[in-house]
Design a protein around this nucleic acid. Structure first.
Lengths: 220, 220
DNA sequence: CAAAAGGTTAACAATTTGTTAACATTAGAA
DNA sequence: TTCTAATGTTAACAAATTGTTAACCTTTTG
């Protein structure tokens, strides 16, 4: 579940980021509205936490921008306000916010609000699960199934398959795979081939195509 | 309802004590962390109000001590901070606080926060009971049953199992478990394994699957 | 306060995973 | 078709991860 926090105060970004990450959310941050909007468009967060008061583009404006962006119109929004008195100011706007939390922020309160909001919404989007044809891969559960049959892959094999399945059809060069799966470790090309072979063997069906001279790709 | 206030400033103790007693709470006070912890263990308060800045043992440290004391781990905690800028200092700690209140303290605000917290605590039993297959875990009653047979788990074992059962199937890395079960304490990986082993031993059925290279997950 | 229970760690064993070299095979250009 | 570079396969070995035990320290409880 992806959360974007936009606040000009670095301390608050740090504070919230820490507490939300601990809860298992993917947290992204921005220190101003411009950057916030840019990031939001890229990340497509499920929830956006906005400071009302910010230089350049305040929370209100940003909220309107967000709500008028097709990809983001379903994102949930929580406003942070300095004091509860500012409710009155907020009231006048049909800003499209889903909740308000006043500073100073209690992380437990915020988290319970977030959970409430995400539960409320149809927020069931397991973006960690990729399912293509009879093959399913679930990153969170670390499970691979072919035709509902469990397939046990080792760590590297799993990462490799997941990588290929994130962009079906795209050819990954060995260099790319070493970057994405091996974190640029110094491994030989044959190592990759061996892992590919093991995956093919375990799945039984050849979903991974060799593109001679280039690399590998996931394809039916 | 018992409340313990720990603050080195006598005036604040007096002030809060007076206001809270007026609301009908049983109020206890301590002027430093050492004494605060000692009293807490004796009194077992429902709520503890801690000053972040104190000589000898500050609020953070005291909070950690409290949270790692079995009898006190369910106590609610409110921090008093001098200014909201101190977020940054709070950020680095997994404090386990339920709320923050900044000085100067408005007794009205504080009391409303206290009521909110205590209400939250009594009223809602989120999903404190999780039942999967023949295994049942009840957080409130601190009970585990397998096939209607009582299983006695130690505190850490319980917390660990509960954590895993909140998201069946999800693989928890050891890092995640240290955050959620140990509150980021410095414990070795083998410690987790030992606890896992004990749980498996006590339940008798292997509900906890090892995902090599990643961590553990609850699964049938 | 002492006994019992719980928590942590180190050391080592057992197991799984990752890598490589060597060789076999294959695709595709010439 | 033939040749060659690229890929596939295998097995051996190295490295990493987890399981287990026992000892030791801490906390809780009677």
């Amino acid at each position: 579940m992806k959360i974007l926090i936009v606040d000009d105060e670095y301390d608050i970004l740090e504070f919230l980021s820490y507490n939300l990450k601990k809860e298992g959310y993917e947290v992204f941050t921005a220190q101003n509205g411009i950057d916030g909007l840019k990031q939001a468009k890229k990340i497509i967060p499920d929830l956006i936490i906005l400071d009302v008061m910010m230089p350049e583009m305040d929370g209100m404006q940003l909220c309107e921008q967000i709500k008028s962006t097709a990809k983001l119109e379903n994102a949930f929004i929580i406003f942070l306000t300095a004091r509860s008195e500012e409710y009155s100011e907020l009231a006048g706007f049909s800003s499209g916010a889903d909740d308000y939390v006043t500073k100073p922020i209690s992380p437990k309160l915020l988290i319970s609000r977030i959970k409430a909001i995400l539960k409320r919404g149809n927020g069931f989007k397991d973006d960690d699960v990729i399912s293509i044809e009879k093959l399913l891969i679930d990153k969170q559960k670390h499970i691979v199934k072919y035709d509902d049959q469990d397939i046990v892959l080792a760590r590297k094999e799993f990462k490799l398959l997941y990588c290929l399945m994130t962009m079906p059809g795209k050819v990954f060069t060995r260099e790319e795979l070493i970057t994405k799966v091996w974190n640029d470790a110094y491994v030989g090309d044959r190592t990759i081939d061996v892992h590919i072979r093991k995956i093919r063997e375990k799945i039984g069906v050849n979903y991974i195509k060799t593109v001679k001279g280039i690399g590998y790709k996931f394809n039916l």
